[in-house]
């Protein structure tokens, strides 16, 4: 700080506090709503302090589900978890291997291969949904985890991230390994992989959140309610015909849907920030 005026300090605290209130309030309201019964919410006079229905709402949502979504939320969470982990691990696996090939080997069409992968950086799945849907349908992958996961790992961010990291590793390490008689497999396993652990973890955090929060793709390719992810499930609990919406269950589900990715961000904040900043570079 250049100068330390009490007034500017005070304003800074005030602005931040206000910002935090705005950021937290919608979620606070959802948590409160998950502790009341339907009648209290529907009459529009929900108190801002917790009610006593939390146990009832959470156990009903987790093990029975809403009237409209028809599946227990615990099952939807399981589907979301499989999808998020599949996307995170799948992407890490294919991209660390291809980055290793592109950086540490000289082979024909290496540059071409790199560009073929690099171009995918530009186009999110949303612009090619129907053709992708058709291909997944033709391959018989509708309503499968493979169909949920595969099209979403077809992107270059991971490869670029690992390539960038590998370029910072000194050449001397490879030269030394070669003198010690290590082959490509040994070098990867004993030298490169241990060095890449932070990068892998950072990519994992980002991809887990990305996978857990997917919406359009699972909406299209899951038709069975047993394959539904939680983000889709909650949307189905809210209908335009208000009478059918069970807001207390919908809000309970919303809280459950936010929990895993938010915990990941809060407890792995350093990795999260690293992953976010470096995948965007």
């Amino acid at each position: 700080m250049v100068e330390n005026r009490p007034f500017t300090q005070f304003m800074a605290y005030l602005t931040l506090a206000l910002g935090i209130v705005i950021v937290v309030f919608p979620v606070y309201l959802a948590i409160m709503a998950s502790t009341f019964d339907a009648a209290t919410i529907v009459n529009g006079n929900m108190p801002l302090t917790p009610g006593d229905q939390a146990g009832e709402n959470y156990s009903r949502a987790l093990f029975y589900g809403g009237k409209l979504a028809r599946e227990p939320v615990s099952m939807m969470m399981m589907n979301s978890m499989i999808m998020a982990l599949g996307i995170a691990f799948g992407k890490i696996l294919i991209s660390i291997l291809s980055a290793y090939a592109v950086v540490y080997f000289k082979f024909p069409f290496r540059k071409t291969a790199f560009w073929v992968i690099f171009i995918t950086l530009m186009l999110p799945v949303e612009v090619r949904i129907y053709p992708t849907y058709k291909i997944v349908a033709d391959l018989g992958l509708l309503d499968t985890y493979t169909g949920l996961i595969m099209p979403l790992i077809a992107s270059a961010t991971g490869t670029l991230l690992f390539r960038q990291f590998f370029m910072t590793i000194p050449d001397e390490l490879l030269e030394a390994s070669k003198i010690d008689g290590a082959g490509a497999f040994r070098f990867f396993k004993d030298t490169l992989l241990p060095l890449s652990m932070t990068t892998i973890a950072a990519l994992f955090v980002i991809q887990f959140i990305y996978g857990w929060n997917q919406y359009l793709w699972p909406l299209l390719i899951t038709t069975k309610s047993s394959m539904q992810t939680i983000v889709i499930g909650i949307k189905k609990m809210i209908t335009t015909t208000d009478a059918l919406t069970e807001w207390q269950i919908a809000m309970t589900t919303a809280v459950l849907a936010m929990l895993p990715p938010v915990l990941v961000v809060v407890f792995m904040q350093r990795l999260f920030v690293k992953g976010l900043v470096e995948t965007e570079k």
Partner: peptide
Amino acid sequence: KRAHFSGWTLPLLLIVPQMAITIIFFYWPA
């Protein structure tokens, strides 16, 4: 990189999974 591994088959095998997924789920639909 100054230092490299030689050989063709291994790098091609390493890059095949990503290439296959990219071609099937990206280039084909696009």
